[in-house]
Every structure is written in C-alpha cells, then in structure tokens.
Write a protein that binds this DNA or RNA. Structure first.
Lengths: 145, 145
DNA sequence: AAATATTGTTAGACTGCCTAACTATGAGCG
DNA sequence: CGCTCATAGTTAGGCAGTCTAACAATATTT
C-alpha cells in the first residue's frame, strides 16, 4: 500500500500541476485575476479581516493587503472598521464587486463546463466522485503546514 | 445535464483553487521550485526541446528558456545540439540534476503520501480513478487556449 | 502604567510570467 | 541558386504577485 501511495502521490501531483497552469492560462484574459476572484468569493457572504483573507488564500498578510488595496481602488470592495477592535479592517464586497464577480464566475464556469462536456459521463462522474476525497485530502495537507 | 455541469464546474474550480495554494505552500521550502521540478521530471527519460518544455509546462517559450538557463547555471541540465536541426536546443538532465530531482520528488511525494494516507481506501481509489479523467479534462482545457 | 502581543500597512526585493523584437537556421519556390 | 517565408530559441523590458523586515496603531497582560 505504501508503494501505491507513493506512486499515486506522484501522479496526482503531476496532474495537479498541469491543472494549475491550465486554469491560470484560461482565466488570464478576464478582467479579474484568479486571486481577486478568490478574495471576492470569500467575502461574498460577510466581510472578512485582512488576516483571515490571507490565511484562507494561503498568502501572507502584506500580500492580502495589496490585493485588497487593488480591489478597493477598483471599487469592488470597501474597508470598514470593526466596532470592537480598532486595529481590525473588515473587507466588504460592494454591489459593483458582486456584479463583476458574477460575470467572472460565469465565464470561468462556462469554460470549465465546456471542457467537462467533452468527457464521457463516466469520466464526469469520476471527477465528481473525487471531489469530496480531494476536499478531505486538502484538509490533511493544510494540517501539515 | 447542462445544469449539472455548471455546478460541477464550480465545485471543481473551488477544490482546484484550494489545492493550488496548498501544494505551493507545502512545496515552498524546498531547494527546487515547482517549475524546476516539473522541468526536470519532463526531461528525466530523454532530452526535450525548449519549445516542448514550454508546451508541456503551459508557459511561453521565453519563459521556458529562462527556466532552462537557471537550471543550467545550477548544473542540473545541459543544452545540447540537435544533430538534424541546428536551430534546436535539446535540454538534457545531468547526473547532479537527477540527484537533486530525486530528493525533491521524494520530499514532495512523502508529503502528499502522508496526506493521502489519512483518506480511506475508497477515497484514495476515488482520487486514483479521477486522474485519467482529469488528464483528459486538461487536454480539453488546453485545446481552449 | 509599562511591557508585550496583535493587526495591518509600507518599503524594497525577488521570482516567474508575459509580449515584442531579434538572430539563426530550415523549407519552399521561382 | 537565391529569395522569401516559417520555425526555434534568445534577449530585453515590463508587470503581477509574492516575500521579509520594519513600522504605526491598538489591545492585552502583568
């Protein structure tokens, strides 16, 4: 089993690396970068701290600050104060940001759906079945950081 | 079906985005960057052209040239001429490069294998089963570029 | 009240990607 | 043959996104 896991690790890492480049390339010509879409998705429901954004995005706080500044100057988020702690900056999505995000998500999902449609239904099912396992795998990976 | 695909697209993109930052973070403290490991893996068996490296890595030729130059100055690859076409540069891994790659791969695979070992065998199987489908999906994505 | 910790920003540097322009070689065609 | 066009790779310059280190402002602890 241990040997199988080593081998599976290698193959999974390969496919993942490939996916990364492809998704980045395909998303490249949009108005919003991948990181911006992630950030907007994160704060869609409720405002988040800069530090929380950094943690969830897997980047350091100064990098998150930068992203937020860019989004703010584009009018897609606003920085609001936290009532209970004056050090904290809460990042809130604006109506304009929601609109932009919807467009970006739609385009990205359409691209992915078009690619998925070229798979057989068995293959689509295999991808769908793997998602919960990958989610769990990601939690295990995150714990190793 | 179309609606299912949209939904699957969103979920798959989410999980992928998450995976990307996790793998990047986990691999970060090694001596070789992710891109360098990819390149060395590609040319492990036989030398490849710069253009082929670029294509497989999903980057442009000048970026591949850059990577190759770095690997060359680190002594991990050498550039050799193609006998049948003087324009072509073949990139060949050196013994030192193989050694470095083995270390990097071992560490990366160990990290991944440790995470995979926390999954049930059904979940591991689901990941393994999805890999061919994702490979095909990636080809479909690549065709949209 | 003072020392320490936390939150976020600023400054400066680095990596890795891009496009555009260039050199050198090969291929097609009169 | 020699001209034109295509292909392979490099060089140059620029940009986005990340990092660490140092800082300011506020909270918490002692």
């Amino acid at each position: 089993m241990s040997e199988n896991l080593e081998e599976l690790s290698g193959r999974y890492r390969d496919i993942l690396r490939q996916s990364v480049y492809l998704v980045r390339s395909i998303d490249a010509d949009g108005e919003l970068s991948t990181g911006q879409v992630s950030t907007l998705n994160m704060i869609f429901v409720e405002p988040m701290r800069v530090s929380a954004i950094a943690r969830y995005a897997g980047i350091k706080v100064p990098s998150a600050t930068e992203q937020v500044i860019k989004l703010e100057s584009a009018g897609m988020v606003e920085r609001i104060a936290d009532a209970s702690d004056a050090r904290v900056v809460l990042v809130k999505i604006t109506a304009f940001g929601k609109k932009k995000l919807a467009v970006a998500n739609k385009r990205r999902n359409a691209n992915m759906a078009a690619a998925l449609s070229e798979l057989t239904s068995q293959e689509q099912q295999a991808v769908a079945d793997a998602i919960p396992a990958i989610a769990k795998l990601n939690i295990a990976l995150a714990a190793r950081l």
